[in-house]
Design a protein around this nucleic acid. Sequence first.
DNA 1: GAACTTCTTGACTCACTAGTCATTTTACTT
DNA 2: AAGTAAAATGACTAGTGAGTCAAGAAGTTC
Lengths: 287, 287
Amino acid sequence: MDKRKAILEAAVELIGAKGYTHTSMQQIADSVGISKGSLYSFFPSKEDLIISIYEHYQQLVFERAFVIGLNDLPPYERFAKQFQVQFEGILEYKSYMKMHMRGETAQSSEKLESMAHRMRGRLFSWLERNLLDLYGDQISPYKWDLMWMTQSIYTSYTGLMISTESTIGPEELGQHIVRQIDILANDFLSGNSHPLLDDEMMRPFSVGMDREGAFTSFGKREEAWKAVYDKVHSLNGDYYLDVIDRISEESRKSKPDELVMKGLFQLLKEEVELKAEAEALEEQLLP
Amino acid sequence: MDKRKAILEAAVELIGAKGYTHTSMQQIADSVGISKGSLYSFFPSKEDLIISIYEHYQQLVFERAFVIGLNDLPPYERFAKQFQVQFEGILEYKSYMKMHMRGETAQSSEKLESMAHRMRGRLFSWLERNLLDLYGDQISPYKWDLMWMTQSIYTSYTGLMISTESTIGPEELGQHIVRQIDILANDFLSGNSHPLLDDEMMRPFSVGMDREGAFTSFGKREEAWKAVYDKVHSLNGDYYLDVIDRISEESRKSKPDELVMKGLFQLLKEEVELKAEAEALEEQLLP
DNA sequence: GAACTTCTTGACTCACTAGTCATTTTACTT
DNA sequence: AAGTAAAATGACTAGTGAGTCAAGAAGTTC
């Protein structure tokens, strides 16, 4: 089976528990049940391993939010739902998040630096997109303050979720966060508070954003999702939208029911217009 | 010359820049201009060194807020001012904060763990005290949510301050944060939002708080400050209060004017009742 | 089943660093 | 100036861990 994936998982587990520097390649190899030499045939260095970990898990966590972004809930609900599914993802990949929160990595290199920058950029452009959808252009002068506070609240609740055993429900938490943002945003919009941050100061955090939005071109799966959603939207009628939303829901489960998925895809494929896109996505989700 | 202090400063600088594991005792020794053997005569191990660093700088940053807590500004202004002086402190000890933010330390030991717990407890009990002073007991059900969000906003703005060159003014920032807390608190109090966190979940974060408040018994200097402020408050009249506030202001400067300080202390010492306390504090501040 | 290719292994090298301690240097005393 | 106590030094020990590679195992082909 997928040995590469097994390595990533074992590494995340160990690094999450003991930290990057206190986890040796030997221990990772032992934990997967292979030799150090083998390990090095998959990842040419420890640094490459940690980068691959980040890329792998980031993809998993963000993809959820991306897919939610495609359906057409009203902005407020969609934002909350996106938080929710990310929190669900985080609960599922707890040890990845533990690792991430420790923050300790290799001596920062070019590669690592640019990856961190991309990750941050992705988060911020997602937040920006949502703020603009919610409040329109009038929010622009306050967007950095809002994004900054949102990001910090988001991060710290994430930390809370993974460190305490008594799970806070992802749904509640998503709604909570959006509500707090809304309160702060309205206060800004009513002119009571003044912003502290501006484009100039935040330049290091603003990544050249894709016109398309926050989540473009991050993987074949995401493209396949987008293609299906776009097609579904072009045909009107809610039926296929319900089907694809149901597929999205099922695919987020930790053990999606393969038969249910197959059946749902069958429904999509009945429509000739959708056939190609549906098959492409099915290919991605059921290998 | 205080060699111990020189070591702490050099170590903070190096660890802040390169991280704990990538800074060797040899490099620290070289940077101070002493030998490794000497270094080990001050700090019996690397772990002891990092703990001493934390104790030293935590003291410096928090002491400022402690002293502000003693004067009698109205709660809202006092809270903002406390944030402000902490931010000023943070700017002054930037590399300490960089080090702290990296978060990476030795394999967590008993000692380190308990120090981290104490630090967190100190921050939270300070926040709690201020929330109670501002809103009274009615805020209790919402205090954890507010404290949690405050702490996360505080931490993330701190990170922003040390990472961007364009300094955000500590005064503005202090006011900004208190204003945001106020908005969120009022929303809770008006019953629009429901709290998410409770005592049960937050047990790991609540430290057995001193009855006295958040900042007690953290050092001789703080006790001396408290003694003077208490005496000044017992005598009434604003004169001595103005003097001691002025002393507090001067002492926060990076290079306090020694003559000004001496003169101000002279003014206090004119009052027989204050003489002993004033001398004790002067002893602490002008060694 | 022999010849050949690909994968896997773990002993080995090399670089690094926390912590020690016999020896030397400096500071102080008489 | 000699003697003694205290402080500073840096070569040394012992341990760790990233990354390599020659030799061996497993799989494939004819």
